[in-house]
Write a protein that binds this DNA or RNA. Structure first.
Lengths: 248, 248
DNA sequence: CGTACCGTTGAGGTGAGTCAAAGTAAGTGG
DNA sequence: CCACTTACTTTGACTCACCTCAACGGTACG
């Protein structure tokens, strides 16, 4: 039996939670026995919108794109899930059907925790429930969406935001200020994430390359100067000042 | 002591949770004693982005606009919270600073539940924790954002989506297929919610009125035929140029 | 009767979408 | 390994929905 990455507390959120929750040995063993390892090819769906939630998914390796299809046929990608992250929490805890589909962007190894197992663990530990609450509350998804889909921001800025977000979930090799990481997305996927069209993505990427801001080659991004990239976004225009108006 | 709406389980989410969680009488009393009633004038901030979370806010009456300020100084509204709804859960459970500010759109009555009280209750009941988990997971905010900020959708469609969403949280009086409800938003607020400019909002509203789709008058919206409204959303994807009525 | 804010209207500009077509990579089967 | 099909990417010309800027009208309030 090959060791499952999911038993490594540094790489798996689920496992971290379990070990922070002072569960008994039998409970821990129970979760170990319950989990299932699954492998998906590129393009395969790990779960599909509209289906029942059957448990929690933990990504061991690979990347998963979450897409939402509204009732009128519009497909909108809103997130990329990378190694160590959990998926399907929202529908699991909301006791609802999946509100999105998860599609493997590359060969993806998943550790699946069935509903029955997770439910039982939750009921034995308030602390575990609070861990999940904490996780769900800190989900950067909603905040990211505000950045990536802000019409007021030009396309180039939204793309840079996307790079910054994806960088956090990728293996980054840095070398003298420049950094390189894998971008397992097609033009169409990128477009869907920043609410644009693939042709426009191509054009923005071309322009960024001629400007020397970032280089896109064979699903790999190279940023010569991260500072330069962040400067374009941030431009230290920050001033959170607002008056305090306390009611009584 | 004036009766707090927050003790009415049909109007307050927080109270619903407490009563579904089989808490002891002393615990219930504890929460009653702990909560604080607060009143805010129009324009006042109930909580501010960047500050520490100090507890949970339950809206009794009035409406609150949630806004996010990014590093550029761009203000983005992303939600309207109405009576009976909770606010500040994300930062409370995430143990993080508020990621948004909550501003009263009209005179607003808030029931505030301090951190200490909520924390203690949470620790005594796994069920309560799961209620909040369930709530947070079902938060329609992220899904709504996808609709309201989808660049592929024309402004008119986004505005209609907004109306449909707001309708759910308002007192709607319907009469023979037509319905009327309160819209406590200024043009600038509407613009911020659908990622547009106030001038554009004015124009779209004007066009919708000439088309007889919806009437905006003095912060009140009247929709003559809801079917017609929903139909427009649906017909959008199939044929790009499918307007039901011409504008001139 | 100003002052201030909000809402409306018009003229003009542009970023990004659309459409169409060619170029390139990736799979498939013999 | 090569033909063949299929999927993805790039490019250019054109168009348009919305933004920007600027001026004006309404309403509330001191």
């Amino acid at each position: 039996m090959t060791p499952c990455l999911c038993t490594n507390r540094t790489t798996c959120r689920f496992y971290q939670h379990l070990h922070n929750s002072r569960l008994s040995e039998t409970d821990l063993q129970h979760s170990e026995d319950g989990r299932k390892k699954r492998i998906y090819k590129r393009g395969a769906y790990i779960f599909e919108q509209g289906r029942n939630s059957t448990g929690l998914y933990c990504v061991q390796s690979g990347h998963v794109l979450l897409k939402h299809l509204d009732k009128f046929g519009n497909e909108t990608a809103f997130r990329v899930v990378g190694p160590g992250e959990l998926m399907g929490q929202r529908s699991f805890f909301g006791k609802d059907n999946h509100m999105a589909s998860g599609q493997a962007l590359s060969r993806t190894y998943i550790c699946f925790h069935p509903k029955a197992v997770v439910d039982q663990l939750l009921n034995t530990s308030v602390h575990l429930a609070r861990c999940f609450l904490h996780d769900l509350a800190r989900d950067p998804g909603p905040a990211d969406t505000l950045k990536l889909r802000n019409l007021k921001l030009p396309l180039r800025i939204r793309l840079i935001y996307l790079l910054v977000i994806l960088k956090e979930h990728s293996d980054v090799t840095s070398h003298e200020g420049s950094l390189t990481f894998n971008l397992p997305l097609k033009r169409l996927d990128i477009a869907a994430l920043i609410s644009a069209r693939p042709e426009s993505v191509t054009r923005v990427i071309r322009d960024m390359e001629t400007d020397g801001i970032a280089l896109f080659h064979d699903h790999t991004v190279t940023v010569p100067h991260l500072d330069k990239l962040l400067e374009i976004i941030g431009s230290n225009l920050e001033s959170p000042g607002a008056q305090l108006a306390e009611g009584s």
